[in-house]
Every structure is written in C-alpha cells, then in structure tokens.
Design a protein around this nucleic acid. Structure first.
Lengths: 252, 252
DNA sequence: CGACGTATTGATTAGGCTCAAATCCTGTGG
DNA sequence: CCACAGGATTTGAGCCTAATCAATACGTCG
C-alpha cells in the first residue's frame, strides 16, 4: 500500500522511480526523504476525457502532477463565450497555490493520469524545501511567457496565422521529436475544432476553413479529422505571421 | 552615499523607510539585515516617458522595483504589429529572472522611478532568503492571472467591451480609491490611444470611436484627451461583457 | 501664432461571424 | 457485417464588426 524507501536507488520511493515529474517536474526539487514523505500522501488517478478537474466545488484543496494527457484551462463570460487560457501537458504541476478563489476551469481533454497530493502536504513541503518553490516559480514564469506569446496571437494575428501557430505549438508539445530544427512532424490533435476555436478566439467554422486551406495548399495532411502530418515544418512556420522580433536578452 | 542602518527603526535603511516596496513589494520579504545589504548595491533612477528599459542590449543584468509610474511590456511581430502583454505599476518587480533571453520589450509610458539592483545581488539574496522567492512567486502568479484575464478580453470580447474593461482596469490601478465597491472614479490615462489599441488588439480609430460612444452615452467624461471621470462605475462594469462566471474556488 | 503630433470623424472594404445545410466519422445494435 | 443514430466537421451564403484609407479637428509647445 504505502511505499518502501529503503531500497537501492538511494531511498527513492518505487512509485516515483519511473515518474517523469522527478526529472522535469516539480518533484525534481525534492530529496529522497521529502519525496518519500510526499509519496505517502499522494495517489494516482486516471481521468476520462471531458471530466472537469477544477471549477466546481469538488477536490479544490489538492494539487497534482500531470503524468500524461492534456488539460485545458478555460475562462468564460457570463453569456457563455469561452476562452482557453492555458494548455497543460505532462509533467506540469496543476493547481493555483496561495489563492482564495480562482476563476479558472480545468478540464481533461484527453485521458489524463495524475499524481495528486493534499493541499496541506504540498504547502508543508514548500515551507521546508525552498527548492520546491523555486521549481514552481520557474514553471509559473514559463506559463507566463506562454500566455504572453498567445496574447500576441489573440490580439494581432489573423485567422490563418492563428491556426498555423496553433498547429506548430501542438506539434512541439506532442511530437517530442519536433525540436526547433525538425523537418517534419506528425501528431494527433488533442482538441476538437470547437476547442481549437476557443483557444484561438475564433469560431469552429473559421478554424475548419483555415485547416482545409492549409490542406489544399499542401502544408498539412489530415486523416480521420484528428491525425495531422506536417511534411515541411518550415512552410508551416512561414504562415505563423513572423516570430516576435525583439532583440533577445542575454541572461541565465 | 551609502546608508546608515543603526538607527531607531530596527535597522532599516533610511532610503527604504518610506518605500512602498517594503510593504506591498518584494522587499517586504527581507529582514533589516538583508535589506541593508541590498540597499548598498541599489540605486534610484528617474526614467522619462518613452524610454526603453529592456529590449535592446543595455542594462539587461539588473532588476528593479517600480516606485512610481507605469511601464508597458510589449511583443512585436516581424512586420511591426505590436501587442502590449503587460502593464506594470508600483510596486511591481521588473525583470524576468532565470531566463537566457526574453522576447519582451519594456518601456516607460509615464515618468517612472525605479530602485535598481544588479542581477547578482538579487540572485544571492534569493538563495539566502526563501521568502523573497516566495514573494516573487506570488507576484508572478498574479501577473499570470492578469494575463489570462486579458486573454479572455482579447479572444472573446467585442470592441466596446474591450474598451470598457480597459478603463475599469486602469481605474482600479491608478485611482487607488476605487475599491471593488467604489461609486465613481477619476484618473489620467497613462496610455495614448495607440497604446490602448496595442493593448486591446484594436486600431486607434476603433478605440477612439468606442471612447466617444461611452462619452455620448454619459458613462464617462474626458477632458484634455487624457483625464477621465467615471461618475457611475456600475454602468461601466455593465459594459465589460459580464465577468467570468466560473465557480470560485476556496483556497488560501 | 504656427507647426507638429495626437485624436476624432467619415466612407469604404474585408475578414471573420452567423445561420443553415450537407458530409464525414464513431459507435451501437440488429 | 451492415444499417443507423448522433455528434463532429466541412462547406456555403450573407451579414456585420472592426480595419483601412483619408481628411479634419484638437492641444501642446515652441
């Protein structure tokens, strides 16, 4: 039931051994001792697509690491207009620390598996281990960078550019072989056309039209409405409206 | 030149005594000892409107606390289209920690006064004082919340709603008397029409038209193109497109 | 007072939305 | 295995909002 910690691999709980969050995720901040204590209070969950994770009462005082799948974060206006304000992939940390109330909804868009901790456990851990808070700060800064990148798309890009930018972003997140210099890519869209339109501030009709246009122009191929192939990533990039051209700063 | 620290007020450097950043800003995280050490390496600056703070080589390895004024953060596409992705007010912390390069420009839109530290000083301080990183995390989370709030506006609100939302946001940040339940407000717009349009993803013509419409409808009054009076904040709120209606979460 | 930059106003255009219909996929049951 | 139902997606036609292009007014500062 609980986890043995006195085995070879320097005391790391067996459950955590194969977990990606220990490398790229926040758990990487923890030493074996803390990890073991956190593991005792954690539990694994499998979530079906479409299930709401945050947004109605429910399990609000817990946080999770994403182990697989895709989660969308949405905000809505009172008349039903909706905007996706974030997509989270493994091994992101899920949940908004320090906040009394968050006007955000989180929903699984694919099958999702989570490693969930009670709120109190994380908070205790954060007090004891500054490195954990450091990781969290880094992820938050990255999310902020992403959010700002999307703001440019939402405010200033045309519909064709938005759709192209979206495909590129998904390709980079899903098809891990797509480094900055990949020639081609191939992936399953995790989102429906309606979701994509909520992401890009468009209608699903417009998204559909732009996708067929990209298809007609030979930039992408689509099978079964979901599976996308990009033979030449460069051609897709050219349709994204030109990257931000600010002079890069040099920092560490 | 440097700062005496052995005076009454429990060793707080005199320069810091009246500083707002010590209360609501990141400096509140520091004990008198750390504060004194940081104060020794800090310097005050006055910046003219229109001056670029970050974005071209320049002083990239320094961070600042804003003491007064307004700074805009922008991103641009290669063809010149621009989007404001953040506005910062006192006592915000300015600068992106841990990043090799940031594709963001920062520019003073009003006269701005800063308290600037060398990069190394802040980083040393962050290692020694987890509370500092904690504050930074909190500010970053708040900026993320704001960014997401704007994403809804950019993606899903109409031009009239965008302009109304913008005025409300400015009112709340500038006219400090505007609590959540204020009846009226009155402030100087820190941004030109062109800036406002870059903020809202519109053209300056559209912004202008929407402002005159609000004026005609008696929702606002404008003097000298800059000074805005809102007699009835409620009426302005009604034009913001309905707040996000997600069920509030309960956290701390 | 005159000049320049900023803001407003007007006329026209076009990109993306709305409404509507047809088509495609998926899963289910006979 | 095939037929069918339901939802998702595509496609079409017309409209409307906000962009574009252009001209005028305002405000500030010399």
């Amino acid at each position: 039931m609980t986890v043995r910690q006195d085995i070879h691999s320097s005391g790391i709980p067996v459950l955590c051994l194969p977990c990606e969050a220990r490398h790229r995720g926040v758990c990487g901040a923890l030493d074996p001792d803390h990890l073991a204590r956190l593991a005792k209070t954690s539990s694994r969950h499998k979530i079906e697509p479409g299930v709401e994770l945050i947004g109605d009462a429910e399990a609000v005082d817990s946080y999770s690491n994403m182990l697989s799948g895709v989660v969308k974060l949405t905000k809505s206006l009172s008349d039903g207009r909706q905007q996706i304000v974030g997509l989270q992939f493994a091994p992101d940390f899920l949940g908004r620390p320090f906040k009394v109330k968050s006007a955000i909804n989180a929903e699984a868009v694919t099958a999702v598996s989570l490693c969930t901790f009670p709120r109190a456990a994380i908070e205790r851990m954060m007090k004891e281990s500054p490195e954990l808070e450091h990781r969290l700060l880094k992820q938050t800064l990255n999310e902020l960078d992403e959010a700002r990148e999307w703001m440019v798309a939402l405010g200033r890009k045309t519909a064709p550019e938005k759709v192209a930018s979206f495909l590129l972003m998904i390709a980079r997140n899903i098809d891990s072989s797509v480094g900055p210099a990949a020639r081609s890519a191939c992936f399953d869209l995790p989102l429906t056309r309606a979701d994509i339109s909520d992401f890009l501030g468009l209608t699903n009709e417009t998204v559909s039209r732009q996708l067929t246009r990209l298809r007609m122009d030979g930039v992408i191929r689509i099978e079964n409405n979901r599976h996308v192939t990009v033979d030449n990533v460069k051609r897709l990039e050219q349709r994204c409206g030109g990257a931000t051209r600010n002079s890069p700063l040099n920092e560490t």
